[in-house]
């Protein structure tokens, strides 16, 4: 799955719109790791299939949304509840030195892993000082 980057489009969340689906909106737990190549985000979204993940990068704001689903057994009644299924949404503000075209997203076992490589021009370069 490739990350979608939409330039200029205003997302419903950014416009202050409320979701019409009557489920809880969760802020997913996230690990952020910096490696030599860039940043890795690992976002926990159990119950979300890859097609229901929406990733947008708008200027510097990276927004991840996931539409959750949970099995509802037929002819059984709920007797014990420890988690409430719902949707997920979280935004991250990035610095400007990421290469938006090369963002990689993988969803596996309910964890979305986003790899944000640094732009080539943002890689540290050494400047030689010439003696004049």
């Amino acid at each position: 799955m490739n990350a979608e980057t939409e330039a200029g489009a205003v997302s419903p969340a950014a416009a202050g719109a409320e979701p019409t689906r009557n489920v809880r909106m969760w802020r997913p737990l996230t690990d952020v790791v910096e490696t030599a190549e860039g940043i890795v985000l690992m976002i926990e979204m159990p119950g979300v299939v890859a097609d229901d993940v929406d990733i947008t990068l708008e200027r510097r704001v990276l927004t991840v949304r996931g539409r959750g689903s949970s099995p509802q057994p037929d002819r059984l009644r709920l007797v014990h509840l420890e988690f409430e299924p719902g949707d997920y949404e979280r935004s991250f503000v990035l610095s400007e030195d990421f290469d938006a075209a090369r963002i990689e997203a993988v969803l596996k076992d309910g964890v979305l892993t986003l790899r944000l490589p640094r732009a080539a021009e943002a890689q540290p370069s050494k400047i030689q000082v010439k003696a004049a």
Partner: peptide, 27 residues
């Protein structure tokens, strides 16, 4: 700490169904 994994339980007189959230765990 809340128990992991969180689980929901459904039942009737003949069956029980348990749904647990285990993100990041390989089957």
């Amino acid at each position: 700490a809340p128990a992991f994994p969180p689980l929901n339980l459904w039942q009737n007189e003949a069956a029980v169904a348990i749904v647990a959230q285990v993100p990041g765990v390989a089957p």
